[in-house]
């Protein structure tokens, strides 16, 4: 049987839509399942039903309050915001120099930065532990601000350098002719047009800091200074007979929703930021 051209196109369309549907379901289902579980308590947890059965909000209340996830949310927010703020400030000047000025050693600096971004965190763990104790930051969120600022730097410098390179040279040539200093060029000319890429880069670094686990697990010991990933990783049931899955899933949903909302709002930018470093570099 020979298919007409129209039939063949219809067939291709069918497979594309089917694939798109399957992909979407696989991507979203685990999170959907987490939401379902978070709304169940007691015996309902053991139901394997794929539709919402009950709407118990108690899990959310106890996860946020009793289990201290609310406090951790605040810590995570503080740590990630401060670290990303400092990091952007330091990296915009560095990125400007690396992207727009020709000087000896530039290539080596870029290479070093790329190397640091591939560092396994565990390689600096004991040295960092010593440093954090020396600075008196052990068990305080200061230790995380310090480490996240540093370990986001390679990424932000790299992406901002890529963005800056794509801007036309004429921009600063005019300013140089007018005798503007580098500082003026950066703050008055580059910073304003870099706005969107700063948002993108900042957002990606924020997500990285929000999710970091190893340093947070090692440098913080008290409950009230924990960040979100550690708080969730450590969640236990109030008694050994109770399965705490309802609480865990409620807490997971709470800490994930802000990130998902951010990502969906800025999705185009995030995609461009993610690929900027790689495709052109």
């Amino acid at each position: 049987m020979k298919l007409t051209r129209q039939q063949r196109e219809l067939g291709t369309k069918f497979w594309i839509y089917l694939a798109a549907l399957v992909v979407s379901v696989i991507c979203v289902f685990p999170f959907y399942n987490a939401i379902l579980t978070s709304l169940r308590t007691g015996q309902d947890l053991f139901l394997t039903s794929y539709l919402p059965t009950t709407f118990h909000w108690e899990n959310y209340v106890s996860a946020l309050g009793e289990n201290g996830v609310g406090r951790s949310l605040l810590n995570s927010f503080l740590v990630a915001t401060i670290a990303v703020g400092i990091c952007l400030l330091v990296s915009i000047t560095a990125a400007f120099a690396l992207a727009r000025v020709r000087f000896r050693g530039r290539k080596y600096i870029l290479f070093t930065i790329l190397c640091v971004s591939m560092f396994p965190q565990v390689a600096v763990l004991s040295g960092m532990f010593e440093l954090v104790r020396f600075l008196g930051l052990y068990d305080s969120i200061g230790s995380l601000i310090l480490s996240y600022t540093t370990f986001s730097l390679p990424f932000t410098v790299w992406v901002l350098t890529t963005f800056m390179r794509s801007l036309p040279v004429e921009l600063e040539e005019a300013a140089i002719v007018d005798g503007a200093s580098l500082w003026v060029i950066i703050t008055k000319i580059f910073a304003p047009i870099m706005g969107p890429s700063l948002v993108t880069t900042g957002l990606l670094a924020f997500i990285g800091a929000w999710n970091e686990f190893m340093f947070a697990l090692t440098f913080i010991i008290s409950n009230e200074n924990r960040t979100v990933p550690v708080a969730i990783g450590m969640l236990q049931g109030t008694s050994q007979y109770e399965l705490p899955w309802g609480h865990i899933m409620a807490a997971s949903v709470v800490v994930t929703i802000p990130i998902i909302v951010l990502v969906l709002i800025f999705q185009k930018r995030i995609v461009s930021g993610l690929t900027a470093g790689a495709v052109k570099g």
Partner: peptide, 14 residues
Amino acid sequence: LVPWAIPTIVTAKM
């Protein structure tokens, strides 16, 4: 983008 956005720890728990 949803799986990418979900924190690794949450992925592990889920």
